[in-house]
């Protein structure tokens, strides 16, 4: 058996979900190793589809011992690793990925990579802002705007409860982070 599987012990969250789903994880480890790894993988970053290859490629390169998975979700592409990265490894991953996002072709499109804490918990986002004209509601990073006042003015007009906004500068332009302030 692959030593990554053999030596792996499920965390409390995976055990709880397995109990909820009636899945025997030890059995699954033998019968369907890939399904076991997916159940026990940890999210590394949620990426915009156009940027997902950067997130996956750097994960593959920086952690060759990890199995990399991707899942398409409403927010984009969730990139996962089995076994999950620990805190120090995630910080190391940040140091690898951030310079790529800062390359001219992505900087020109205002790509961002950040750690966010919201109602869903703490996670990493690799994204591209949505232009103000293309905004059709919901959460996201909107911009660019010329300055903070422009960003706030746009938000006053478009962002309504339960959504709220924060305006922030990035590479000389301003953006609105639109997010949900309370559970639906």
């Amino acid at each position: 058996m692959d030593p990554r599987l053999r030596d792996h012990t499920p965390g409390p969250e995976a055990l709880r979900r397995a109990a909820d789903d009636g899945v025997d994880l030890e059995r699954l480890k033998i019968d369907d190793p890939v399904a076991y790894m997916v159940r026990n993988a940890g999210t590394v970053v949620t990426a915009a589809p156009e940027l997902a290859h950067l997130a996956e490629g750097m994960l593959t390169a920086a952690f060759p011992d990890r199995q990399v998975f991707r899942a398409e979700v409403a927010e984009g592409v969730r990139v996962l690793a089995f076994p999950p990265l620990d805190g120090e490894e995630l910080r190391s991953y940040d140091r690898w990925l951030a310079p790529l996002v800062d390359r001219p072709e992505w900087r020109a499109r205002h790509a961002y990579y950040r750690e966010v804490g919201d109602l869903r918990g703490v996670g990493r986002e690799l994204g591209l802002p949505q232009g103000p004209d293309a905004y059709r509601g919901g959460e996201g990073v909107i911009g660019p705007f010329e300055d903070g006042a422009d960003a706030d003015a746009w938000a006053e007009e478009h962002v309504t409860r339960p959504l709220v906004h924060d305006s922030f500068p990035m590479n000389g332009r301003w953006f609105c982070d639109v997010f949900r302030a309370e559970a639906p």
């Binding site: 290859h53 950067l54 996956e56 490629g57 750097m58 593959t60 390169a61 920086a62 060759p64 690898w96 790529l100 390359r103 072709e105 992505w106």
Partner: peptide
């Protein structure tokens, strides 16, 4: 693998 990832390519490694 590392070089291709640093170049921003869509890297797949078959190990």
């Amino acid at each position: 693998v590392e070089m291709a990832a640093r170049l921003g390519c869509d890297v797949h490694a078959l190990r």
